[in-house]
Amino acid sequence: MKSSYRFLKVPLCLFSDSYSQLSVEAKILYAFLLDRLTLSEKNGFLDEDGSVFVYYTNSEVCRTFCCGSQKATRLFRELEKYRLINRRNQGRGKPDAIYVNQFEESPNSLFKNNDNQHSGVMKPHILECGKSPPINTEYIHTEDSHINLSISYNVVKEEIMEQIEYDVLAQRDFGGVLEEIVSLITDTYCSNESYVRIGKREIPIATVRQRLLMLTAEHIEYVINSLERNTTEIKNMRAYMLTSLYNSIDTLEADGLYGN
């Protein structure tokens, strides 16, 4: 008798030593994305280069895995870190376009990346129709006179980039705002001032530094998405972003807790 069950196909190589640090849930999510890829091909979800993309939102991941939004974001970032997917930010509340990288038959090559075999790997370009509106960076700048010269600026910047998984975030279509955020965090950490203004409060630099060291890729992504959703005029982008970064430690946790 023919079975009426549907099954997910999980590539066995995901259980090799090369992917030993990839969580089982991330591997299962990849299988769901592969399954969705077939549906997208049938529905003609193609970009201008003919590459297939899928839609699979954080909300869907939360329902499938019975988890919060923070964990859903973390699973996507795991897959990005291992270059199993690429996500293109479409801005203004639109879901990300997800390109699913597929495996070669040969164990010596993981992905199909040549021009004759479309793997769905995202091309390094921005589609005009999905381009996010630019974020005004007019007021973002580095004031060298406030930099603490006893701290190695370049060392701090490298450590911040590693801390927030910059290489993973750089695969997203965030434009120049990601670079501005890295510079802002580094400038603030290296500040020679005793206090830093966060919103309407003057907070000791030691406290601010401690909070900045708690930032992860999830917080950066959360702040950028919040900036894109903002519809009010921002007079001082630098101050606004710093306040958003500082507060994201609490607001992201609250959103995850209440499923916002």
Score class of each variant (00 low, 15 high):
residue 117 Q to W: 08
residue 108 N to K: 09
residue 95 P to F: 01
residue 99 Y to V: 02
residue 144 D to N: 12
residue 115 D to H: 06
residue 140 I to T: 11
residue 151 I to P: 03
residue 102 Q to F: 05
residue 119 S to V: 03
residue 128 E to P: 13
residue 129 C to G: 02
residue 145 S to G: 03
residue 108 N to V: 02
residue 105 E to C: 10
residue 102 Q to V: 15
residue 101 N to A: 14
residue 102 Q to N: 08
residue 148 N to V: 06
residue 147 I to K: 04
residue 144 D to L: 12
residue 109 S to K: 15
residue 150 S to N: 14
residue 113 N to S: 15
residue 111 F to G: 05
residue 123 K to Y: 07
residue 106 S to D: 10
residue 114 N to L: 05
residue 121 V to H: 11
residue 119 S to A: 12
residue 127 L to F: 05
residue 129 C to A: 06
residue 144 D to F: 08
residue 143 E to Q: 08
residue 125 H to L: 12
residue 120 G to W: 03
residue 124 P to L: 00
residue 144 D to M: 11
residue 100 V to C: 05
residue 132 S to T: 13
residue 104 E to F: 04
residue 138 E to W: 06
residue 107 P to G: 00
residue 124 P to K: 00
residue 142 T to I: 13
residue 96 D to E: 04
residue 110 L to A: 09
residue 114 N to Q: 08
residue 142 T to M: 12
residue 106 S to P: 00
residue 128 E to D: 14
residue 129 C to F: 12
residue 122 M to L: 11
residue 136 N to G: 06
residue 126 I to D: 04
residue 104 E to Y: 04
residue 140 I to G: 07
residue 147 I to T: 10
residue 107 P to S: 01
residue 127 L to Y: 06
residue 129 C to M: 14
residue 95 P to Y: 00
residue 116 N to R: 13
residue 137 T to A: 11
residue 122 M to K: 13
residue 142 T to E: 11
residue 150 S to K: 14
residue 145 S to E: 13
residue 125 H to K: 13
residue 120 G to D: 06
residue 120 G to M: 04
residue 132 S to R: 12
residue 118 H to N: 07
residue 125 H to R: 12
residue 120 G to Y: 03
residue 107 P to F: 01
residue 113 N to M: 15
residue 114 N to S: 10
residue 121 V to C: 14
residue 129 C to Y: 10
residue 122 M to R: 15
residue 94 K to W: 04
residue 113 N to A: 15
residue 120 G to F: 05
